[in-house]
Each structure stands twice: as structure tokens, then as C-alpha cells.
């Protein structure tokens, strides 16, 4: 369509047809109109006096937050240890549970595309659709406050994440290698172990470490709803307006996350 004849017998080419061109312009117009509309909605409910006041308020809180209360640090060590345990144990539990789910969900390994696969996909979606902190709220109500609720919350949220990325990795493997193993007379389980597992190992390791890294960050806030860890101290410090303590807790969390990112980068590099 975009080829048009010019009078001298030459031909011209455009990327889009005239109608396509108009559709693209109309799409941009809609996007701009929507942005303007959203901006109006957002500013309607804003109390501008507070916004103009913001720099003063920020400076005030900032002034109260320094210096950090260093003497509070020893009291943070135990909650920090709890936080690391929540993240690590939760990730391990999620790995154990998500590997079978991933194999059931992958189109090329599922025993039944019609029945088992939708079920496995539902488990993954259900787990992913609920944030860790919501899982923790529910679990604190069910299991009572404490580290266990945090571990289970992290695990339930991570099953979907690891399961989804892993089943996508399984679906992307090179079928030629699987076929070659099958052609030797290998059984189904052997084909899995020799044809598929070696191909998904780098993805599996990368996904697990990545999720562990995310879980360290998520577990620092689980305490806000009573699920154990350093978040408990953060909540009580915020409630008592102990700003120097809040500063120290935020610094400790920052340091922990930096270290966990460094570890996960190292591990992924070593595996791939």
C-alpha cells in the first residue's frame, strides 16, 4: 500500500499508509488529552497550602533526623538477623514449592495442557497478585505475629515470581537437545534430567538469587504489620516520633540491601 507511483515512472515508499498515519496521530492526541485530564484530577484534591509548605516541613524533619542515634545500633542486630532469616528461609521454601509448579505450567513439560496447566498458572497468578505485605497481614491474623508469618508471607509471594520466570525459561529451551536425549532411549525422567535441567540451570540460579535479593528488601517492611524483623523497630520508632532512630534504621536497611545486591550479582556472575 505505501508504495505510490510518481509521474516520471518512479516509485515512492512510505512507512505507513495515509490511514495508518492518521491513526498514529490520533493515538498521540488521545495520550496527550488523557495526561491533561489526569493532571486535573490529581490537582483538584490537593491542598496547596501544604504543598507550598513542603520545603519547610522537609527541612524540619530532616533537622530532627540528624544525627542518627548510634547507641540504638546494638538493639537492631537481632531484628536484622530475623529479617535476613525471613528473606532466606522464605526464598528457600518458595524455590522448593515453585519448581514443580513451573514444570506443570510449562507447555512443553506439563502432563496435561487442558487441565494441569491452567491449575498451575492459577497458582502462579494467585501468588503474584497479592503483595507480600498483604500476605503478611493475613498471616499475622492466622498464625499470630512473629517471624513465621513473615517467612510464609515471603514464600507465598515468591512462588508466583519464581514459578513464572522459571516456566518461561523452560518453554524457551532448545528442543533439539531434548530430542537427542529422547532418541538415545532415555526415559521421561532421564530426559528431564539430561535434556532440560542443564538448559534451565543458569536461569534457575539467576531467578532464585534475584528473588532472594528482592525478598531482603520486602522483609524489611513486613514488621510494619507485625510479621517480625527490623520493620517492627521502624514502626515503633515512627510511632514515637523517634526520628534519629528512624535514620539509623533506614541506614541499616540501605547497607543490607547494598550488600545483598552485591552478593546476588557475584553469585549470578559465577553461575552464568
Amino acid at each position: 500500500m505505501p508504495v505510490t507511483a510518481l509521474p516520471e515512472g518512479l516509485r515512492s515508499w512510505q512507512r505507513r499508509t495515509p490511514r495508518g498515519q492518521i491513526a498514529v496521530w490520533f493515538g498521540w492526541l488521545l495520550a496527550v488529552a488523557f495526561t491533561v485530564f489526569c493532571w486535573r484530577v490529581m490537582t483538584q484534591g490537593t491542598i496547596w497550602a501544604f504543598v507550598w509548605d513542603a520545603p519547610t516541613q522537609a527541612a524540619d524533619i530532616g533537622a530532627r533526623m540528624v544525627p542518627p542515634r548510634w547507641s540504638y545500633f546494638p538493639a537492631l542486630l537481632k531484628p536484622l538477623w530475623d529479617t535476613l532469616n525471613i528473606a532466606t528461609l522464605g526464598t528457600l521454601a518458595a524455590i522448593v514449592l515453585s519448581v514443580p509448579v513451573a514444570f506443570l505450567a510449562a507447555r512443553n513439560t506439563t502432563p496435561s495442557v487442558a487441565f494441569v496447566r491452567p491449575l498451575a498458572l492459577f497458582v502462579i497468578v494467585a501468588s503474584r497478585s497479592i503483595n507480600s505485605i498483604i500476605w503478611a497481614l493475613l498471616l499475622v491474623a492466622i498464625l499470630g505475629p512473629g517471624v513465621l508469618a513473615g517467612i510464609v508471607a515471603i514464600a507465598l509471594r515468591s512462588i508466583g515470581f519464581i514459578g513464572k520466570l522459571l516456566y518461561e525459561a523452560i518453554e524457551e529451551i532448545d528442543e533439539g537437545q531434548v530430542e537427542a536425549i529422547r532418541a538415545t532411549g532415555a526415559s521421561g525422567a532421564q530426559t528431564l534430567a539430561y535434556g532440560i535441567v542443564p538448559q534451565i540451570m543458569p536461569a534457575f540460579a539467576g531467578i532464585s538469587v534475584f528473588r532472594w535479593d528482592i525478598n531482603i528488601r520486602e522483609s524489611t517492611v513486613l514488621g510494619l504489620v507485625g510479621a517480625g524483623g527490623i520493620g517492627l523497630n521502624l514502626e515503633s520508632s515512627l510511632n514515637t516520633l523517634a526520628w534519629p532512630q528512624v535514620t539509623l534504621i533506614l541506614m541499616v536497611i540501605l547497607a543490607t540491601v547494598v550488600v545483598s545486591e552485591w552478593v546476588s550479582a557475584k553469585v549470578r556472575h559465577a553461575i552464568i
Partner: peptide
């Protein structure tokens, strides 16, 4: 169609999978 991430020996031994049980192979 070699299993790229396995060693040469593992690839060759995979030719014996039809003769050995799962755990021995695994």
C-alpha cells in the same frame, strides 16, 4: 544437538541412558 552445558563425557555417557536407571544417570 549436544547438551551444551554438559561436558563432553556427560554428553557421550547420555548415549547409555537407555541402559541405566534414573538415579545412576542423575
Amino acid at each position: 544437538a549436544l547438551v551444551e552445558r554438559l561436558t563432553v563425557m556427560e554428553n557421550v555417557l547420555s548415549g547409555r541412558l537407555g541402559y541405566v536407571g534414573f538415579w545412576r544417570a542423575f
